[in-house]
Simulated assay, not measured.
Amino acid sequence: MAEGLPSSIYDLTVKDIRGEDVSLGTYSGKVLLIVNVASKCGLTHSNYKELNVLYKTYKDQGLEILAFPCNQFRSQESGSNEEIQETVCTIFKAEFPIFDKVKRNSPLQVLEIQKGGLLGDSIKWNFTKFLVDKTGKVVERYAPITSPAKIEKDIKRLLEA
């Protein structure tokens, strides 16, 4: 693990969209789908629609979707946290947790290091997705163009494990 970074996602404390501290340790024992999101990306509508379906279908079975807005890719998430929350909850009807806007390499760097990408470890675009098992291990990384619906079989497998 890189110097100065925790070895587990559960060791991280992040801010939610309202600026409150949230220990990711509270999600221990759940399957996590962690996504860097943006409201003005060409992938936004389809991703939020499918993420909402996955969340409604599997949240009672132990799935949590954690959305981390990021503005580093063509300024596609330029609003304040209040504006982001309004957009995500009102327009896209997201019910899963939304966190404070992040730089692409923090706190998601722990995920990047555990599961590097095809073109290097760092996140290259909005809607990169990381699937984390119940023990906090990143088991898969999906490209931004991967439809959340195509991840469903992997989510089911981890929920049943």
Rank of each mutant, 00 (worst) to 15 (best):
A2H: 14
E3Y: 09
G4D: 08
G4I: 02
P6T: 05
S7Y: 00
S7M: 13
S8Q: 01
V14D: 01
D16H: 04
G19Q: 06
D21P: 14
V22E: 11
V22T: 07
L24C: 04
L24W: 07
L24H: 11
S28Y: 07
S28I: 12
S28G: 11
S28Q: 15
V31D: 03
V31R: 06
L33F: 11
V35G: 08
N36V: 08
N36R: 11
S39D: 05
G42F: 04
L43W: 11
T44W: 10
T44D: 11
Y48K: 06
N52Q: 05
V53F: 09
L54N: 02
Y55G: 04
Y55S: 09
K56A: 08
T57H: 10
T57M: 14
T57R: 14
T57D: 12
L63C: 00
L63H: 07
E64D: 12
N71H: 13
N71L: 03
F73V: 04
R74N: 10
S78E: 14
G79F: 02
S80L: 05
E82M: 09
I84S: 00
Q85I: 04
Q85N: 10
E86A: 12
T87S: 12
T87F: 12
V88Y: 07
V88I: 07
C89G: 06
C89P: 03
T90M: 02
I91S: 11
I91F: 07
I91P: 01
A94F: 03
F96E: 06
P97H: 12
P97V: 06
I98R: 03
F99N: 01
D100W: 11
K103N: 06
R104H: 01
R104F: 13
S106D: 15
P107I: 07
L108A: 05
L108Q: 13
L108T: 09
L111H: 01
E112G: 05
E112P: 02
I123L: 08
I123V: 05
I123Y: 10
K124S: 00
N126K: 07
N126D: 03
T128P: 01
K129C: 05
G136W: 09
G136T: 12
K137D: 14
V139C: 04
V139T: 10
V139R: 13
V139Y: 09
E140D: 10
E140I: 07
Y142W: 07
Y142E: 03
A143G: 00
P148K: 14
E152S: 13
E152D: 14
K153R: 14
D154Q: 10
I155T: 02
I155K: 07
I155H: 04
I155P: 04
I155W: 03
